[in-house]
């Protein structure tokens, strides 16, 4: 009796795991297959899985629809986003991790609560402000908006990285000849680097995937998702899948490379 129960529990568990995996993986698999399928196979009702593959869809999307420009825009915006949010976020997270000051916990909560602010409300005033400042339809403008979205994540993630590096390492460095700033750059930063790299990739993905703000704030210099939303929606299906393929690549690459550090990033453990 008992053995049967165990077996059933196990089967149920596996079934659940398979279903969850399928839920996540099917769309991705569909994107991968369809993005590289020749259109004849894709539209053949008799073929569930295409047999002939090509890079033509991607080529047309990037070079004939000239999405390479928006891809470059997206990369530029994402890199700028990382630069801005890290420049502002690292000092904040470092001081949260190292110093006790009045309002420290309140500040952390405030950062988190920024994520509750609805983006839609922000969009229109931001667009108006950008027009006045001359930031409208610029890479920098989108990057600044994305940086403000990414900043709470950057602060909280890098905070947990800095917290996990014992302060004694810095104190020893200061005893043995470094200034406070040098101790940060020569001792703490090298140790934090893997985690910071993972946080940077995460920030990249946030910016890369963001479509709402990017659509509102740009017209000519669209980022990839903002442009796809307008252009590719009217294109044939294989191009949509090709666009989707390019869109998911950074996130997938990120997960493969940073998987090891994700644990660190969420502050569960250092190693």
């Amino acid at each position: 009796m008992y053995r049967w129960q165990q077996a059933l529990t196990r089967i149920a568990l596996y079934a659940a795991a398979v279903m969850v995996s399928a839920w996540v993986l099917t769309p991705i698999a569909l994107i991968f297959i369809s993005a590289f399928a020749v259109p004849e196979d894709y539209y053949d009702v008799g073929k569930v899985i295409p047999t002939e593959f090509t890079l033509e869809n991607i080529r047309v999307l990037l070079f004939e629809l000239r999405e390479w420009r928006t891809t470059l825009n997206s990369i530029a915006v994402a890199l700028l986003t990382i630069a801005v949010s890290f420049t502002l976020g690292l000092p904040a997270s470092y001081s949260l991790a190292r110093y006790v000051f009045p309002g420290r916990d309140g500040f952390k909560l405030l950062i988190l609560s920024l994520r509750m602010f609805p983006l839609m409300v922000l969009g229109v005033p931001l667009a108006e402000l950008y027009i006045r400042l001359g930031l409208s339809d610029t890479i920098l403008g989108v990057a600044l908006a994305h940086a403000s979205l990414a900043l709470p994540f950057v602060v909280l993630i890098t905070y947990s990285i800095f917290v996990s590096i014992p302060v004694e390492y810095e104190e020893a460095a200061m005893v043995f000849g470094l200034t406070r700033a040098e101790a940060f750059f020569k001792i703490t930063l090298p140790m934090a680097l893997p985690g910071l790299a993972a946080a940077a990739m995460f920030t990249f993905v946030i910016s890369w995937n963001e479509v709402f703000v990017a659509s509102i704030l740009t017209l000519m210099r669209r980022t990839l998702p903002a442009d796809i939303l307008v252009t590719v929606l009217t294109a044939p299906d294989p191009y949509k899948f090709a666009a989707a393929f390019i869109m998911v690549m950074p996130a997938i690459t990120f997960v493969f490379i940073a998987r090891r550090y994700l644990v660190t990033m969420w502050g569960i453990s250092l190693r």
């Binding site: 014992p166 004694e168 390492y169 104190e171 020893a172 460095a173 005893v175 043995f176 001792i187 140790m191």
Partner: peptide
């Protein structure tokens, strides 16, 4: 000065 830390703090 020099110091030996409880956690050693060797980098």
């Amino acid at each position: 000065i020099s110091m030996v830390f409880q956690s050693y703090a060797i980098w």
